[in-house]
Design a protein around this nucleic acid. Structure first.
Lengths: 162, 162
DNA sequence: TGCGAACGGTTGACCACCTCAATCGTCGTG
DNA sequence: CACGACGATTGAGGTGGTCAACCGTTCGCA
């Protein structure tokens, strides 16, 4: 990086811009999550652009196609989004006839979102693209390390106090 | 799953809204990163609000106070932000006299950002708040698991292909 | 039974943030 | 020394996050 020193032969292979790795901030989980996400979501969005989706809309579509019949509020809580954002996302997907809002017979306030046939086929296609994008993001890790990372993140994301 | 079954006594303690955990999306790294970050950054921002910072401005301040004398462009690459965003963040910190822009003697195009005395004291104070916020976010993990998560994220965040 | 509080969905406004293109001064190379 | 590349800056345009208010519905409770 510095313009004068020649490459150190003992330097481990570090693809990132490395001079600032000395800074204490690389120990911050918040920073690491932000940067990992920045790296990955660009790629995921690129892949999903082919089917006219983004990570946001893909998440909603995936939940709608899960067979669990989630209400919009459930989606909002699960994805940590404001309910009003779900409205817009479902609006868009419904306009494209990928999902449908069905009234909940038990509670007429809430609406259950389910994937249409077209939605389900698109979702499986999109899931493949997400997975290949993910593969590239996780390429520095071995298979067991990837599973480990998923497990640790799952616990932080779901079992952390409110 | 089915709406009628009574609570299963073998169910592990899951604090999250759990019904949708059956959905395949919980295996998505992108989703897990987004949710973990959503959980944690709210807390971190709350803590930092006491000193008038956010995670963004804190990151810039921390880099400025690292003693590494980073240029704005280095910061941008490291934090994965657009250079124009760095301008605004440094403007704000400079206005509060927490950091100073110094001309780089080697390259008069670039400006080195360093923390002032006030900036450094605020930074150490802020670092404490970030750490306690992080402690709560990572509370579901043991100490060795936390280090493991940090290490895995570091590799994904820095060694992943462009 | 009926009343009020709470809730789900929706809308709209507002602010933070991201991305991009254009500009200016500076650097490096040929 | 001329030209292309680069760092910082500005401004525009689009997206996303947050919040308050609203309507219809449900639930707790008197």
């Amino acid at each position: 990086m510095s313009p004068i020193t020649e490459p150190d032969e003992a330097t481990p292979v570090v693809r990132g811009e490395s001079r600032l790795m000395e800074a204490g901030i690389v120990g911050d989980i918040e920073f690491l999550l932000a940067r990992a996400r920045a790296v990955g979501s660009v790629r995921a969005n690129q892949g999903l652009a082919d089917v006219g989706l983004k990570v946001r809309s893909y998440s909603v579509l995936a939940l709608a196609c899960s067979g669990l019949g989630p209400s919009q509020r459930e989606m909002a809580g699960f994805l940590r989004l404001d309910p009003s954002q779900i409205v817009a996302l479902v609006d868009e997907l419904e306009r494209r006839e990928l999902v449908a809002r069905e009234p909940d017979s038990r509670d007429r306030r809430s609406k259950v979102v389910t994937g249409t046939r077209a939605g389900r086929t698109l979702q499986t296609k999109a899931a493949r693209m997400v997975r290949t994008a993910e593969d590239r993001s996780l390429s520095p890790l071995s298979e067991t390390e990837r599973e480990l990372l998923r497990d640790l993140l799952r616990r932080v994301a779901f079992e952390s106090p409110t």
